[in-house]
């Protein structure tokens, strides 16, 4: 646990919701937590086992897991977790997992709208088609040259998780990618 309090500051512009009227809506997800969980390479470290484990330890946080790599997960949720609570949780996680709070290091962006996949297709090189990338699916990939994790949260809604230091760059890029749908003449 840290011995000082982190003051989490949003990396996004102050008026981040100014595009609320647009066809493609891009918004930061300001609250919530991102925790990196790493299995120590044994056979027991699988998603089902970990889901049960974290639901028992912290039922109030939900058990949304997204796997960037074999044996690794991002445990993501929408409510804020205090550092004290996180220390409690990490104390209860058994030794076959390592856990690290990454709320300060990875930020989330919500992007939605009927043309959201056309927007993402300009940067992401993975197949986001209905039958392939179903609601709930997630993938660690790249948007342009920026590494990002794309998760489909609904039919026309995706969540993008990116390292904090790339967030503004990606934010700007996403707005550029969406500009043709969000311009003043967009139908």
């Amino acid at each position: 646990m840290r011995d000082f309090l982190l003051n989490n500051v949003s990396p996004f512009p102050a008026k981040a919701d100014a595009n609320g009227h647009a066809a493609v809506h891009i918004a930061p997800i300001a609250t919530g937590f991102v925790t990196h969980v790493l299995g120590k390479g044994n056979a027991k470290a699988d998603a089902a086992h970990l889901t049960k484990l974290i639901s028992d330890i912290a039922p109030e946080l939900g058990a949304t897991l997204r796997s960037p790599s074999p044996g690794q997960w991002f445990w993501v949720g929408d409510c804020d977790v205090s550092q004290g609570r996180f220390a409690e949780i990490s104390g209860q996680i058994p030794g076959e997992y390592a856990i690290s709070d990454q709320t300060h290091g990875r930020v989330r962006i919500m992007i939605s709208g009927p043309q959201v996949r056309d927007v993402l297709a300009k940067g992401a090189m993975i197949d986001l088609a209905d039958g392939v990338f179903v609601v709930g699916a997630s993938a660690m990939t790249q948007i342009g040259h920026i590494g990002a994790m794309i998760t489909r949260t609904d039919d026309d809604c995706f969540e993008i998780m990116v390292l904090r230091s790339f967030a503004v760059s990606l934010w700007h890029e996403l707005h550029q990618m969406a500009a043709e749908f969000n311009g003043p003449h967009a139908g």
Binding site: P68, S69, P70, A139, M140, T141, Q142, G147
Partner: peptide, 9 residues
């Protein structure tokens, strides 16, 4: 090959 833009394996 290193899957640097994905699973990093």
């Amino acid at each position: 090959w290193h899957h640097s833009g994905g699973c990093r394996r």
